[in-house]
Amino acid sequence: MKDIIVYTQNECPPCKIIKMFLNEYGFSYSEKNIHEDEKSRQELTEIYGSYSTPTIIVGSEVIIGFDLEKIKQVLNINE
């Protein structure tokens, strides 16, 4: 199982949906809220080159924004 990190922020409906989706499929993940943690905000922009949430990291894959099809592909979810 690859590590999953979800970068979120407050008042972000797509962030909530992604977390519900991951929970529904039984994936564990680490959440990093960029509004509450300056270090997480720096990681998001400097390491991953993203300025939006949600940004989902699955192993070496970086998914910027709400891209459910890409997340399903990376996590091998076939429906």
Rank of each mutant, 00 (worst) to 15 (best):
F21Q: 08
I77M: 07
N33S: 13
K32N: 03
I77Y: 01
T45K: 12
K2A: 12
G65N: 08
G59H: 14
Q42C: 03
P14F: 06
E36P: 00
L75T: 03
G49T: 02
I56L: 01
I5Q: 09
L22A: 13
N76S: 15
E31C: 04
C12A: 10
I5P: 02
E43H: 12
G49A: 05
K39R: 13
K2P: 06
I77S: 09
E43L: 14
K32Q: 11
G59K: 11
Y51W: 11
I63C: 04
N23W: 00
S40L: 04
V62D: 04
E79C: 01
T8C: 09
I77F: 06
N23Y: 02
S40H: 03
I57W: 08
T8Q: 11
I47E: 13
S40T: 05
G26V: 03
E61L: 04
K70N: 07
L75R: 03
F66R: 00
M1A: 15
V58L: 05
L75K: 02
P54N: 10
I17D: 00
N33F: 13
I4V: 14
I17E: 12
K72T: 05
S30H: 09
Y51D: 09
S52L: 12
S40Y: 09
I34A: 06
L68H: 10
V58F: 02
S52F: 02
K70Q: 14
L22N: 11
E38H: 12
L68T: 04
D3W: 00
L68N: 02
N76M: 10
I4E: 05
L75I: 08
E31Y: 09
T45I: 09
L75Y: 06
T8Y: 05
E61V: 06
I63H: 01
N33H: 08
G65W: 12
Q42H: 05
E61W: 02
K16V: 07
K2S: 09
P13E: 12
K16M: 12
M20A: 13
P13K: 06
F27I: 14
N10Y: 00
M20L: 11
V58P: 00
F27G: 07
C15P: 06
I64P: 04
E36Q: 07
D37F: 01
Y7I: 07
I71G: 03
I64R: 15
R41L: 15
N10M: 09
L44R: 05
C12E: 09
S28I: 13
I47F: 05
V6A: 08
K2Q: 13
G65V: 10
S52D: 02
D37A: 01
C15L: 11
T55R: 05
F27H: 11
P13A: 10
S60K: 15
S40M: 06
E38A: 15
Y51H: 12
E36R: 04
N23F: 01
Y29S: 05
Y48I: 04
Y25T: 06
K16F: 04
I64C: 08
I71Y: 02
Y29E: 11
V6F: 03
S50K: 08
I5F: 03
I56R: 01
G49P: 04
L22G: 13
K70I: 10
Y29K: 03
K39G: 05
N23H: 07
L75V: 10
S60E: 15
L75E: 05
R41H: 11
G26L: 12
I5N: 01
G49F: 03
I56Q: 02
N78P: 00
Y48G: 03
F27L: 14
S50L: 07
N33P: 11
Q42N: 13
S40N: 10
